[in-house]
Design a binder for these strands. Structure first.
Lengths: 159, 159
RNA sequence: AGACACCUAAUGAA
DNA sequence: TTCATTAGGTGTCT
């Protein structure tokens, strides 16, 4: 069973630079950023990246402190596919592009994927590591957008 | 012309503690609470309290962000009195006791009363003040019901 | 079907 | 403290 913690960050939500990251509990991590977004987009991107980075048949457990991201990817997704992507109050589902990419990634992965919510800010080691990576990625994205830094852009993969 | 903003609150609607409040634009306010109810009951109690607290002949304008409360007290009330308190779909009118108390308060007041709907959550000063008072009253009622606080119960009147 | 309101929850930030 | 992002629900009427 592969276990991966994810987290997203958004500086000055909404509209600020965003960053996301995943950390495999057995080792390995990755992060990425974009010049603008929302906290929810960052959380969803983290989940999507975690799934895509761990293909194969081995069961995968994705952990996030975002109930929004966890429920989007698990319990709400099937309902939305059935009802034409409508919210309970009749409006359109937000961030639909990302949610559909998660849906597709789940369909394409031969092995099962589980989603688990973990509370944030209570000292969970891997959550805090993902948090730090996501925050750093967001700050890099902000600097890159400001043209302040060397353009060594985008996804960084760690050991 | 006396202008009074009203608001109601219900924690964990339905069934939670409720609070209600009115705020006179010229100064003065009051609030009260009960251990259980619905959001609509809280809104109706707020307008009832506002009417009863402002007797006399001077025209009174009652403002609320609840279309339900405003229409109950104005356009629906006369129809319901005529038709035996039946809803348009044939069912019984809910919260009838409160609605009849509002009817009576209106009848007894020598001066005219107007009802005006104002949109919520758009920064209206008096609406927000009433909202804060109603929320505080609901929280007090919950604490009192839990026996957590000193029993300095019920209606609070402000300057 | 529409409208308004009342919440609940988690996260992200300033 | 206060703001935003998002979802789920109920209370009530027409």
């Amino acid at each position: 069973m592969i276990i991966v913690s994810t987290d997203g960050s958004c500086l000055h939500n909404p509209g600020g630079a965003i960053g996301w990251a995943w950390v495999n509990h057995a080792g390995g991590s990755a992060s990425g950023g974009a010049p603008s977004g929302t906290n929810q987009i960052a959380e969803l991107r983290a989940v999507l990246a975690a799934i895509e980075a761990h293909p194969g048949s081995e069961p995968l457990s994705v952990e996030s402190d975002s109930i929004y991201a966890i429920k989007c990817a698990s319990e709400w997704l099937p309902n939305w596919r059935r009802n034409g992507w409508r919210t309970s109050s009749g409006g359109p589902v937000r961030n639909l592009d990302l949610i559909r990419r998660i849906d597709q990634a789940l369909t394409e992965r031969p092995g099962p994927v589980r989603f688990r919510w973990i509370r944030g800010h209570v000292g969970d080691f891997f959550n805090e590591q993902a948090d730090a990576l996501a925050g750093a990625a967001a700050r890099e994205a902000r600097a890159a957008a400001a043209g302040t830094t060397d353009p060594s852009a985008e996804p960084v993969t760690g050991r």
